[in-house]
C-alpha cells in the first residue's frame, strides 16, 4: 500500500508580480508504506518544498497529495494528515518547546488530545526509541546537537505518525551526531515499520536507503535503488551532485585501466574488488 501519493504536483513561490519560483514541477510519486526513501538534490532543487507538501504545510498549486488516501487540500482532515506525517527539520535549536525534556515530548500528544496515562507511556516509549530515556527529567539546552535532534525525533514519534520526514536533519551535526540520528531512523523503520523519508546532502546517508530519488529544478530526475542511481555518475554531476567517496575512487581506477567496476559503493566493496588485483 502506498503511504503517500503525489499526482502531477506543482508548487510555485510568488516573490513579486514578476518573479515566480517554480519550486516543484509536475511531480508524481508513490511512497510505499514501510519503505526508507532518501531524496537528494542541489540547493534549490525543490526537495524541501516537496517535504513540506507531504504533510500539508504547503498545499499544491496543481495536482494532489494524498496521505493514506486523504487529500492534503481538505481543510477538515488536515490534522489527520499532520498526525500521520511527522517532520524533523534542520536546526535542533528551533524545535524545542519546553525546558524539561519529558514536557517537550508530551507537547505533541497533548495537542492531539491523548489521555494523560497514555501520554506518560508514549513519552517513555519515544525517549527509549531514541536512546534518551535517562535524560527524561533533564533540560534540552545542555545537550549535544545529535542528542537534540534525537529528542526532536522523539517529540515527533510520540504523536505516533506512520511517516517520518527528516528534512536535512543531520546537516548541522558532527559525524557522531549524524550517525546517531541515522541509526535511530533506521531502527524506527526496521522495528516499528515506520515509513522514513530522508532528505539529505550526504551521499553516504542516501546509500543506506531502499530507494533514492534525485531532484533537479523541481523535477524528479532519477528514482531507483541507490546502487543504480549512483551508477549514473555523469548524470549526477549534471545535477550538481556527487557519488560516495569510495565510488569516486573506483571510477578513477577504472579510468586508469584498473577494473574494479564503477558500481562500488563503499569501502568494503572497494577493498574486496581490489584484493585480487594487487
Amino acid at each position: 500500500m502506498s503511504a503517500i501519493e503525489l499526482k502531477n504536483v506543482s508548487f510555485s513561490y510568488v516573490l513579486s508580480e514578476t518573479e515566480i519560483v517554480r519550486a516543484v514541477r509536475n511531480v508524481s510519486l508513490e511512497i510505499e508504506e514501510g519503505s526508507f526513501v532518501a531524496i537528494v538534490g542541489h540547493n534549490g532543487s525543490g526537495k524541501s518544498t516537496l517535504a513540506k507538501l507531504l504533510n500539508g504545510l504547503l498545499i499544491p498549486d496543481k495536482g494532489t497529495v494524498k496521505v493514506f488516501g486523504i487529500d492534503t487540500k481538505e481543510k477538515s482532515t488536515i490534522y489527520e494528515v499532520r498526525k500521520n506525517v511527522g517532520m524533523v527539520f534542520q536546526n535542533p535549536d528551533n524545535q524545542m518547546v519546553a525546558s524539561i525534556i519529558e514536557d517537550d515530548i508530551a507537547f505533541g500528544p497533548e495537542n492531539l488530545g491523548v489521555k494523560r496515562e497514555e501520554i506518560v507511556e508514549r513519552v517513555d516509549w519515544a525517549l527509549s526509541q531514541v536512546g534518551m530515556l535517562e535524560h527524561k527529567k533533564g533540560t534540552p539546552f545542555k545537550l549535544s546537537g545529535g542528542q537534540k535532534q534525537r529528542l526532536a525525533i522523539a517529540g515527533i514519534i510520540a504523536m505516533k505518525p506512520k511517516v517520518l520526514v527528516l528534512d536535512e536533519s543531520t546537516a548541522m551535526l558532527d559525524p557522531q551526531g549524524r550517525a546517531e540520528v541515522m541509526r535511530v531512523a533506521h531502527e524506527l523503520n526496521k522495528k516499528e515499520g515506520m515509513t522514513v523519508i530522508c532528505i539529505t546532502h550526504y551521499m553516504e546517508e542516501a546509500l543506506e536507503a531502499d530507494r533514492l530519488i534525485v531532484m533537479s529544478d523541481g523535477k524528479v530526475v532519477l528514482d531507483n535503488i541507490p546502487k543504480l542511481v549512483f551508477a549514473q555518475s555523469k548524470e549526477l554531476l549534471d545535477y550538481k551532485l556527487t557519488v560516495p567517496l569510495a565510488t569516486q575512487a573506483a571510477i578513477e581506477l577504472e579510468n586508469l585501466g584498473i577494473s574494479v567496476g564503477k558500481d562500488v559503493m563503499n569501502k568494503e566493496e572497494l577493498v574486496e574488488r581490489l584484493c585480487p588485483l594487487l
Partner: peptide, 8 residues
Amino acid sequence: TAGLDPSG
C-alpha cells in the same frame, strides 16, 4: 561548507 550541496 555546512548545509551546502556537493557543488556548493
